[in-house]
Write a protein that binds this DNA or RNA. Structure first.
Length: 747
DNA sequence: GAACCCATCATTTTT
DNA sequence: TGATGGGTTC
């Protein structure tokens, strides 16, 4: 195991029984996981077929797959590298009938859920104000995660009138999903658990298959996922979980930090390995991070250290206002560029998406190319959702939610009244809406609309026939043309319509791409990928751009130069977390700060503004407590450090803490900034740099890879003592891999 | 059914 | 500030 430190090596070679790897930021976690897999196969003769590696995001799964392929070579493809959700889909597609479902089920995403809840609220005549859709979805999700059925939920909250209604919403929601033959994301996990509980033979099948299980980002697992893993690992108990409690930042979406904190109680015989050597950051940056996180209680005891040089001090700049901050960041970026830095080495991180606007405006003004990561994703766009809606109905006509979405898009004279009447009939008959449409001409009271409904069903039936014997891309084009969707946009002749058309073209590209690469393309599988793979897997256009994103999106990434803006009380840590009665809320913000700081490799710039526009209000925020938690000797402070003094003269800072609400002013209308946002550049994936290696080839050489065969080295980037090698293979196309992992031989 | 006006409301996000 | 959703009007 060349190039691993003793702890890493220990983690790789401990293969039997439960293992907890506490992997600090930048400690070479992914390397350990991939090496461990290789070790299992090479040294312990484990059949790759018996290995399961679970990650959280598709991106992580993709990267791991690539690295595993590169290091393992032949046989690697039989390792399951998967997200929780795609693993469950795969299992359910095979066995869902055992639970009485149909295996062509549709997966409902957040938007579909929202539509379903809204329908339920209307049905139950409940007020959206009192029962906000978001909160209802959260409540349902939470209930599912703790395996509470609607009735159990009702019982548990028997005392509360409101909760009784929530239970009713949950019940109706679930009923709807069932009759629509749809599962939401939580169902994917929970129904798989149901399947295992009700059919022990199926569970055993997978226990036998997955004799070695690894879970990455274990601190992000929720309760249901914990249970699922536990069931799978129950027989062989070869469960290795990797995570960092200090990087747990997703409590708000169900992550349960106790899964990792209590792992040793759950598995008393567990071995614990701590990876505490950081290879990423300078000592100053790392110590700043340590200083901040030390203020949290209830964490696993560990302290990151590094052999890296001390480096520059962490810079903290207080700007007069938010615009000044954006300008200051831009100015600093120019300085870095002059000194030979590259934009792709820099990132600006912020707490809330709302902060991006002012930064974007500044970057546009200064002609600094940038990319936003995250934000609205491709599949959330209206035109895409519409087209996907058509595909969903074609694939699963029972999907009422999607049917209602598209039945009058583009306008075809089937208005709300008609739809509601037909829904009533469907409810009466106990059939799906689509079944009602099928005999629209027999229906009473639809006189005028009946013809239009009939036209629509005929259209849909034609699509279904195409779906049966044509390709998906042909079907897609047919939908675009025969519904008049394309024509309508073409006639609009606005920038927006043009961009929508481009997106529709992009979707076609994705579909064709899928058809070319899938082993056995099917509409069901395509839709599954669309639902499960949220973000556009970025075309890496390779152009040199600044990256801007939220702190959350930055997890798992690294950049030589990092800017963390808006280091202000009530922005970061967020006001909501400070007002929360949950003491962990502020600790989670601190972990988020820790995550942000540890993204930086060479230089970290922190900043705050003395005046900031928040939700249309002018505020005078105090400097974030996190700044004060960084040891003074690591900080280089710039700008006016006093708080609202800049505006109010000499007032006590703490007064502004207390009275911040009193110091906000409503902004008068009319001002506004001149620059409008351009269409957003598409998000691009970033990947981290690894560590060591000695190589006997260089750019231009022909090399051989165990799996991909012959190829020519196109590029070698040094990262630490490793090389990131880009090879153009004769068969497999261009691949990037690490010299230390890929067993490349010069030919 | 579409265009407009007003009121309301604001973390973080992947699957 | 801005996005969004509901209600109103033509």
């Amino acid at each position: 195991m060349a190039g691993l430190n003793p702890k890493q090596e220990e983690a790789c070679s401990y293969t039997e029984g439960p293992l907890l790897i506490l992997a600090g930021a930048g400690s070479g976690k992914t390397r350990v996981i991939t090496h461990r897999i290789a070790y299992l196969i090479d040294e312990r003769s484990v059949n790759p077929y018996n290995i399961l590696a679970i990650t959280f995001t598709n991106k992580a799964a993709g990267e791991m797959r690539e690295r595993v392929d590169a290091i393992v070579g032949f046989g690697a493809e039989s390792i399951w590298v998967s997200t929780f959700h795609s693993m469950c889909v795969r299992i359910l597609r095979r066995f869902y009938e055992r639970l009485g479902g149909k295996n062509n089920f549709t997966i409902y995403d957040a938007d579909d859920q929202k539509a379903a809840v809204k329908e339920v609220l209307r049905l139950l005549s409940l007020d959206e104000k009192q029962y906000p859709v978001r909160a209802m979805i959260a409540a349902i999700s939470k209930a599912k995660e703790s395996f509470l059925s609607p009735s159990q939920y009702e019982e548990q909250n028997a005392g509360s009138f409101r909760e009784q209604n929530v239970a009713a919403i949950y019940r109706e929601y679930q009923k709807r999903l069932r009759s629509n033959n749809a599962l939401d994301f939580d169902d994917l996990i929970c129904r798989t658990i149901d399947l295992f509980l009700q059919h022990p033979d199926v569970l055993e099948l997978y226990q036998e298959r997955f004799r070695y299980i690894m879970v990455d980002e274990y601190q992000d697992t929720n309760h249901a996922q914990f249970v699922l893993v536990k069931m799978l690992a129950a027989k062989y108990r070869n469960l290795c979980v990797v995570g960092d409690d200090d990087q747990s930042i997703y409590k708000f979406r169900g992550a349960n930090i106790y899964n990792i904190l209590n792992f040793e109680e759950e598995y008393p015989d567990a071995k614990v390995v701590k990876l505490e050597q950081n290879y990423r950051s300078t000592a100053n940056i790392l110590n700043a991070a340590n200083g901040v996180i030390a203020n949290n209680e209830g964490r696993k005891d560990k302290s990151l250290w590094t052999e890296n040089p001390e480096g520059e001090k962490v810079v903290f700049t207080r700007y007069e206002d938010d615009r000044g901050e954006a300008a200051g960041v831009a100015k600093r970026i120019f300085k870095l560029l002059q000194a030979g830095g590259r934009l792709s080495d820099m990132a600006v991180l912020y707490r809330t998406n709302a902060q991006s606007r002012i930064l974007e405006e500044q970057m546009i003004r200064e002609n600094i190319p940038y990319q936003l990561v995250g934000g609205t994703n491709f599949y959330a766009r209206k035109e895409i959702r519409d087209m996907v809606g058509y595909l969903k109905v074609i694939s699963n006509p029972a999907d009422d939610i999607s049917l209602v979405r598209i039945i009058n898009v583009p306008r075809r004279g089937i208005g709300d009244t008609t739809v509601n009447r037909m829904r009533d009939i469907a409810a009466e008959r106990g059939t799906s809406l689509y079944d009602v449409l099928l005999d629209a001409d027999q229906l009473p009271g639809l006189s005028r609309a009946a013809g239009k409904v009939k036209d629509f069903v005929e259209l849909m039936e034609r699509f279904r026939r195409t779906a049966e014997d044509g390709t998906i891309s042909v079907l897609y084009q047919e939908i675009l043309d025969q519904t008049g969707y394309r024509k309508e946009l073409e006639q609009e002749r606005t920038d927006e319509a043009r961009s929508r058309l481009e997106n529709l073209q992009e979707l076609l590209n994705k579909i064709s791409d899928y058809e070319m690469h899938a082993e056995q393309p099917s509409l069901v599988e395509l839709l599954e990928e669309i639902s499960l793979v949220a973000d556009t897997d970025a075309e890496e256009d390779g152009s040199d751009r600044l990256t801007m994103m939220t702190l959350h999106s930055a997890k798992g990434l690294e950049f030589p130069y990092v800017f963390m803006v808006g280091m202000e009380e009530r922005l970061f840590p967020s006001g909501l977390s400070l007002d929360s009665d949950d003491p962990d809320a502020t600790e989670e913000e601190r972990r988020l700060c820790y995550v942000g700081i540890t993204r930086a490799m060479k230089q970290l710039y922190l900043s705050a503004a003395g005046r900031r526009m928040v939700n249309g209000n002018l505020t005078f925020p105090a400097v974030s407590r996190f700044i004060e938690e960084i040891p003074e000797n690591l900080l280089q402070k710039e700008g006016k450090q006093e708080d609202a003094d800049a505006i109010f003269g000499s007032q006590d800072r703490n007064r502004y803490y207390d009275e911040w609400q009193g110091t906000t002013f409503r902004r008068k209308t009319g001002s506004g900034y001149g620059v409008r946002r351009e269409s957003r550049p598409k998000p691009t994936m970033q990947r981290g740099l690894p560590e060591k290696a000695a190589v006997d080839y260089t750019v231009g050489d022909t090399v051989k890879h165990i799996k991909f065969g012959r190829g020519v080295v196109k590029e070698m980037i040094r990262g630490g003592n490793d090389y990131e090698v880009t090879v153009l293979f004769d068969g497999a196309g261009e691949k990037r891999m690490f010299a230390s992992l890929a067993k490349l031989r010069k030919v």
